[in-house]
């Protein structure tokens, strides 16, 4: 499924999650994976870190997402290997449902990165030193507004501008908000031709 509208630019404040190797079990723990729809995972986002109790009644005041200064953030900052581990697409669903539009990190795990693209959630990889700058600026001034321009492939905040790389087909899909399945179905004839030349034992 791909969202109907495309992604071009986004401006918002950021929440810093200054830690490496944040895995998808942490983003959305297994007890919330028994759903059969894509909706409603945001309230469980980062459950173990965000709540002191199992019933999500007692927010952990030390966790960044709960701090007053980061309320309303729509950009998440993190470090290397963000989204590692399980392939659960519930992770981007939860981030998106919570209100994040862009994740900026030093690097991403491959499956998570692809899952973000398929959900119109923009993953932006910046260098370690650029991330240092972002974390410093956002921690010093939590109301700092960050603009992410996908067309120009830039991240801008407080007199600073960084460029980022993104594969052309990922950019294209995000900008256009395309129905990936619909596009592939148009190649039905080529798929059928491929199938006809496959070996008989398959």
């Amino acid at each position: 499924m791909t969202a109907p509208q495309g992604f071009s630019t986004h401006t918002g404040t950021a929440c810093p999650l200054d830690e490496a190797n944040i895995d998808t079990d942490q983003i959305i723990p297994k007890q919330f994976l028994t759903g059969v729809t894509r909706a409603g995972y945001g309230k469980h986002l980062f459950h173990d870190w965000r709540y002191l109790d199992l019933h999500e009644q007692e927010p952990n005041p030390d966790f960044a997402l709960n701090k007053a200064e980061y309320q309303g953030a729509s950009v998440l900052l993190s470090r290397e290997n963000f989204g590692c581990g399980s392939s659960r697409e519930h992770a981007p669903w939860a981030l998106d449902d919570f209100g994040f539009k862009v994740i900026i990190a030093t690097s991403f795990a491959d499956i998570f990165y692809g899952n973000c693209i398929n959900n119109q959630l923009l993953p932006v990889a910046l260098s370690s030193s650029q991330m240092d700058t972002l974390f410093e600026l956002v921690k010093a001034r939590p109301d700092t507004r960050i603009t992410i321009d996908l067309t120009q492939q830039t991240v801008s905040l407080a007199q600073q501008q960084f460029s980022f790389d993104i594969a052309e087909h990922h950019k294209h899909n995000l900008l256009k908000g395309l129905d990936a399945i619909g596009l592939t179905l148009e190649l039905g004839q080529q798929i059928e031709q491929y199938e006809q030349q496959q070996p008989a034992w398959l």
Partner: peptide, 17 residues
Amino acid sequence: GIGTSQVEHVLATQTLK
């Protein structure tokens, strides 16, 4: 391993980009 959007893509088309 793939995400659920890709599971849907494979179910519908038997292919993946």
